[in-house]
């Protein structure tokens, strides 16, 4: 589904990613772990197509298509979803209007008719249950006045609405209390299928107790220094990142 080959990327001329290769197949969950500043969020943003990040070398293919040739909105319509570490507030734009526009852009891309208002509201009611999000939130402006936890839940709610093939969760666990974490994880697991894949970017293995990865990659200083099964997360938790730093 997703092939990242020798990816190098920089921000403002500073190289952050220094040759990353990952292969993600449908149905898989990959966890990207690593200390602060290792390049985890950069990787997430490069995949989503943020223009601030410049790809200097390497290739990314998504379902056989060269991802680097696509603008961010085209990648999104092709099925890539990024759950933001810091979801953005858009004052005055209602969640309903925002999501309706997004959903209908996705439908247009697939050659489907746009949803009518009532069909859309029905879909929203259905998906709200997945993340136990209240109507109070969906009636407000996008992320405006949401608490940290509410913002993260709102990200997973949008994911449920858009049904991506590849979901990238960037530090979705940060700022969540244990109950919210459970709800978010439950949402992600409910949306899981043999046809879609998930990349979980996280500091801690805590989230991985709820969203169990097939592979764990440790990112350090812009490179993947270790890849293994889910047990690697536990080992990291025990030994800390210094262990990896010393090894590399």
């Amino acid at each position: 589904m997703l092939q990242i080959k020798n990816l190098h990327a920089s921000v403002d001329g500073k190289e952050i990613l220094k040759g990353i290769s990952i292969d993600v197949k449908p149905g898989e969950i990959h966890a990207i772990m690593g200390p602060n500043g290792s390049g985890k969020s950069t990787l997430a943003n490069v995949l989503a197509g943020h223009e601030k990040y410049e790809v200097t070398e390497g290739e990314i293919f998504f379902e056989g298509e060269n991802l680097l040739e696509l603008a961010a909105e085209e990648r999104a319509r092709n099925g890539i979803f990024l759950s933001f570490q810091y979801p953005i507030e858009i004052p005055g734009v209602s969640m309903v209007n925002f999501l309706k526009t997004a959903v209908n852009e996705h439908r247009k891309h697939k050659g489907l008719e746009p949803l009518t208002a009532s069909q859309f509201l029905k879909l929203m009611e259905e998906k709200k249950k997945v993340v136990e999000i209240s109507s109070q939130l969906t009636n407000r402006s996008v992320n405006e006045g949401f608490s940290g936890g509410e913002k993260k839940r709102n990200e997973i709610f949008q994911m449920a609405m858009l049904e991506p093939k590849l979901a990238i969760l960037d530090e979705t666990d940060s700022g969540l209390d244990i109950d919210a974490l459970r709800i978010v994880a439950k949402g992600v697991n409910t949306l899981k299928s043999p046809h879609n894949a998930t990349i979980v970017v996280t500091h801690y293995q805590r989230l991985l107790e709820y969203i169990v990865p097939d592979y764990v990659h440790v990112l350090y200083n812009g490179k993947i220094v270790k890849s293994a099964g889910k047990e690697l997360a536990l080992e990291l938790e025990k030994k800390g990142y210094d262990w990896i730093k010393n090894e590399s």
Binding site: E73, L82, I90
Partner: peptide, 11 residues
Amino acid sequence: QIFYCNQRGIG
């Protein structure tokens, strides 16, 4: 803000 919209498929 623009990137956030882009990422949801909005041009």
